[in-house]
Design a protein around this nucleic acid. Structure first.
Length: 571
DNA sequence: GCCGTTTTCGGCCCGACTGTTTTCAGTCG
């Protein structure tokens, strides 16, 4: 029983309790405990073994007993009972927009106990007979049922980014908009976002709202009020707009940047001091303070500035109280990219084009790391072709000033754990990235052996996309990542934060875990085209979400220090 | 169900929008 499995069960229990009309604070307690476990750096099984469950804030005697039962028997009688009362199909009803626990209660009281029955009742116009439900709600439910698949979708950061540029540009162009900022999970740099939130400062809210719902990229207006509006865009992604008077901009921006958990924790803390926090500012002793900036906002409540990427209630508030927040790595710290492909394997560009693009981005170096021979479908390089490429790189480097192409390889970690080139070949290269591209379905033991062999090879500098996941398309390999992190800290091998928005691998949570162990990272784009060099921003966001600092990331090093690191790195 | 410089009992984050109501509950972020 993993942390994640316990969390899922707790979340489900919380939903069932709400539908059953139990004490709302009880379901909150389950949710809260689930969230603590999700973000925890520990394994519940260890805590159970060590009898330390109750030391975890949010877990008292009752929840501890339930976790113990789950971990030791794999089942939970209480949960089995609850499931009888509200089967999964009923919980699905909560996913319909506008339908919450109270509405589901009404359905259950009128013998509507499945999505099918719900749809039938709506079609027969029987729903509108129920208390608190009218014609509009009935229609909304029918629409919601039809769009359920689509609406649950989350969007990759790269897709959201395109929409943000368009919408942000449009809003910024409005006369009445004094300030425009994107908020929400996009601003926090989450790997996927469910919708987009914009905050605009204006003295004329109605005018801004009117232009927003009337924009050319609006497909459907979901809600329209005096201060906020919600639309579905032509790209399918939902966009929310909040318009406030200029003095309230910073408070509102903070509020809608979230996360929800961060906000709740912050308000809870404020309440303990006798203050009150809302999007309208901070109330201290009857006086409402409206900070001009987010920096001032945090200052007013006795905290140092918490960057958006850290606002997840994962310990950032306590760190800010103590002035112990890390100084997160920034895009401007990046001196070069250590994993890109050229035309020699499956990339699109020549070495010159790659070098030029790197220099245009202010980089001091770029490692060309084409695939190795065994990846035939990528036109992987043989030893001979690798040698030719090295010669061309040497020739080009003689012409560059303040820039260096590094000769590298993305060497395949073969199914049996050997590398695709022997040590003699690898030792002649500047940078060696080792990655798994086959045998994804092997068992955990085998996969760990393969990666561990690569980590222990003294010529390997970086493990590429360490867990192999593709966001919302392919799960990670069955890897014990904890063990990989520990070994990487030991051997001094860097782990990649692959910046490709489909990968973001390592993920933010693993970065955080690795950082605490002293792992070094390389933020690489794995670009197959010069345009993808710009993906670096997503990798940096992920690193920041994992609390990584400049010194945790090897490609922030100036060239001479990087070369020293590549030669030694801790061995 | 948790928790305690206000508490071992009585609290537990805050406000806008919508629809169904005639003053508010439910939902959402």
């Amino acid at each position: 029983m993993t942390n994640r499995e316990v969390c899922e069960i707790f979340h489900e229990i919380a939903e069932i309790l709400e539908i059953l009309g139990e004490n709302p604070f009880k379901s909150r307690a389950y949710r809260n405990a689930a969230r603590v476990l999700e973000n925890a750096g520990f394994d519940v099984q260890d805590l159970v073994r060590e009898g330390r469950l109750e030391d975890v804030p949010g877990i008292g005697s009752a929840l501890a007993a339930k976790i113990r039962e789950l971990v030791t028997t794999g089942r939970l009688a209480y949960y089995e009972d609850l499931k009888q009362k509200a089967p999964r199909d009923v919980l699905e009803m909560l996913k319909i927009p506008g339908v919450g626990a109270k509405t589901v209660q009404v359905f259950l009281n009128h013998n509507i106990t499945s999505l099918q029955e719900l749809e039938a009742a709506a079609r027969d116009q029987r729903l509108r007979e129920l208390p608190g439900i009218g014609k509009k709600t009935e229609e909304e439910i029918l629409r919601g049922l039809a769009a359920m698949q689509e609406r649950q979708k989350r969007w990759l950061l790269s897709v959201a980014s395109m929409a943000v540029k368009e919408i942000g540009g449009y809003l910024a162009g409005l006369d009445k908009a004094a300030r425009v900022e994107v908020a929400g999970s996009y601003r926090r740099g989450r790997e996927t976002v469910g919708d987009l939130d914009f905050v605009v400062a204006s003295d004329d809210a109605p005018a801004v709202i009117a232009r927003f719902v009337d924009a050319p990229w609006v497909r459907e207006v979901v809600a329209e009020g005096d201060l906020k509006a919600t639309v579905i865009t032509v790209w399918g992604i939902q966009a929310d707009l909040y318009v406030v008077a200029p003095p309230l901009f910073a408070s509102t921006l903070h509020h809608f940047t979230g996360s929800k958990e961060h906000n709740v924790a912050l308000r809870e803390r404020a309440r303990q001091h006798g203050w009150k926090i809302s999007e309208y500012g901070i109330v201290k002793e009857e006086e409402t303070l409206t900070p001009a900036t987010e920096e001032e906002f945090f200052q007013l409540i006795g905290l140092s500035y918490i960057p958006p990427e850290m606002r997840e209630d994962r310990g950032e508030i306590r760190a800010a109280e103590r002035g112990e927040l890390p100084r997160l790595v920034e895009t401007g710290d990046i001196e070069g990219d250590l994993h890109v492909h050229s035309r020699a394997s499956d990339g699109a560009n020549t070495l010159e084009e790659l070098a030029e693009a790197a220099m245009a981005r202010g980089y001091r170096y770029l490692a060309v790391t084409d695939h190795s021979r065994s990846l035939a479908f990528t036109n992987g390089l043989t030893e001979e072709r690798l040698k030719e490429q090295r010669e061309e790189i040497d020739r080009l480097n003689r012409e560059f000033r303040n820039f260096r192409l590094l000769a590298g390889i993305e060497v395949d970690i073969l199914s049996d754990g050997r590398l695709d080139f022997d040590d003699r070949v690898l030792s002649q290269l500047d940078v060696v990235v080792a990655s798994v591209h086959s045998g994804f379905r092997q068992d955990q033991e085998t996969l760990n052996r393969r990666i561990e062999a690569a980590l222990k090879n003294e010529h390997v500098d970086i493990i590429g996309h360490p867990t192999g996941r593709l966001i919302s398309r392919r799960d990670p390999y069955a890897l014990d990542v904890g063990r990989v992190l520990e070994l990487a800290a030991d051997t001094g091998t860097a782990l990649e934060i692959n910046a490709n928005p489909d990968r973001l691998d390592l993920s933010d949570a693993y970065v955080r875990q690795g950082r605490d162990l002293g792992v070094r990272f390389a933020i690489d784009t794995d670009a197959h085209h010069v345009n993808s060099l710009d993906d670096m921003q997503y990798g940096v966001l992920t690193a920041r979400r994992g609390w990584a600092q400049k010194q945790d990331v090897i490609n922030t090093l100036p060239l001479d220090e990087l070369e020293k690191w590549l030669k030694r790195h801790g061995r």
